[in-house]
Nucleic acid binder design. Structure first.
Length: 354
DNA sequence: AATCAAGACAACCGCGCAGCT
DNA sequence: AAGCTGCGCGGTTGTCTTGAT
């Protein structure tokens, strides 16, 4: 049973939109708003299907769209979010006000994918690959896609690695969930010094991120970061924070090289904060030792965990909600003293088999 | 100046999901 | 529960622009 087409296509115009079509659509929507896309073309006097109108509006005509090239900060934010979310362009677009999923997707395909390749990173996993991407974008990245192997010989190893990587990531996240859940249940404070950070069981690299625009609301548990001895690096993705705050990072190694900014273990948070969001970010890492996204996190339970002090006002963000931490690439660590859940045991078993 | 290739971006297509009847 | 409808999403294609030869 075939699906009914979204609209009657006979006699409808296709292809690029003319200026007068844009004008008609904009003036109609400005006057009446958006209710039913299907009905809009007729009401607006357009020979387009509703779907085409919706796309034109959302991707091009919407007044809140930000035109022009992507800034470095936006670019880094996309890279980071893609590392976490994959090709979920709409989700990524939610974090970039004024940008559309289509725009981001195009930018990714034309610029960022190549950029990652040139850096020797797999555009799907964002992890280093042995061989650089070939032109023609047959990314080695396909290894991240278990469904697309189509029986190519020699892919079984790749598939294994991919599966292992996926399972590892899943496992790490579940461990984190368990650990964070326990912490939240018992009101046990999060580690505040480097020494309290669990060291064992580093699993795999992956980025984690925090939507600073919504504070801690509605975030799913994410990952731990593994901390090097006494020092912390924000990783390249820390630039996200800057993007969200829409200003340039301060401090040493700014200019996109902030991934190499380190803070001594013993440096106090108060000292580290130093008025700059860049340092706030580092400071939270320094003091907190870990960061996470957790559903139900609030200002008050963060305060319980000793974090509230560091969520100061940041430019362009509501006071006390604009935490500047965004994300960074580090390794997962095995949370201490957490009895493995069934899910974890299951995943661990799969991992062993691989 | 003409041609071709590559790049950039707009637009389309098909699928899946949610809400409604 | 099943079918229908509208919408949103991600992948893909089409078209225009730019740069190289």
């Amino acid at each position: 049973m075939g699906r009914k087409p979204c609209c009657e296509k006979v006699g409808l115009k296709r292809g690029p939109w003319a200026a007068d079509e844009d004008k008609k659509l904009v003036s109609y929507i400005n006057a009446h708003g958006v209710s039913c896309w299907r009905a809009i073309p007729k009401l607006a006097g357009l020979l387009r299907c509703g779907k085409s109108c919706r796309l034109r509006w959302t991707n091009y005509l919407r007044p809140d769209l930000k035109r022009g090239g992507f800034t470095d900060a936006e670019e880094n934010l996309i890279l980071d979010l893609h590392a976490t979310l994959g090709n979920r362009w709409s989700k990524i677009a939610m974090q970039l006000p004024g940008r559309t999923d289509n725009e981001i997707k195009n930018y990714w395909n034309t610029h960022l994918k190549k950029k990652l390749c040139s850096m020797g990173l797999d555009p799907v996993t964002h992890k280093p690959v042995d061989s650089a991407c070939t032109d023609g974008d047959t990314e080695t990245a396909d290894e991240g896609n278990l469904d697309s192997s189509e029986g190519h010989s020699g892919h079984s190893k790749v598939m294994e690695n991919s599966l292992a990587s996926k399972v590892s990531d899943e496992l790490a996240q579940l461990k984190t969930i368990d650990y964070l859940g326990e912490r939240m249940d018992t009101q046990k404070p999060f580690p505040t010094t480097c020494n309290e950070i669990p060291e064992q069981g580093a699993i795999s690299g992956k980025s984690c991120s925090l939507d600073t625009t919504n504070s801690f609301k509605e975030h799913k548990p994410d990952v731990f970061v593994k901390l090097e001895e006494g020092t912390y690096t924000t990783g390249p993705d820390h630039m996200n924070a800057i993007a969200l705050e829409n200003h340039t990072p301060l401090g040493p190694n700014s200019e996109g090289a902030a991934d190499s900014c380190w803070l001594p273990q013993e440096q106090s948070l108060d000292t580290a904060v130093g008025g700059s969001s860049f340092y706030q970010e580092v400071a939270v890492m320094n003091g907190g030792g870990l960061f996470r996204q957790l559903s139900g996190f609030t200002q008050s339970n963060m305060a319980t965990a000793g974090w509230s002090t560091y969520f100061g006002e940041t430019p362009g963000q509501p006071s006390s909600t604009g935490c500047s931490i965004s994300s960074w690439n580090q390794s997962f660590v095995q949370p201490p003293g957490v009895p493995p859940s069934k899910e974890i045991q299951k995943l661990a078993a799969i991992l062993d088999q691989i």
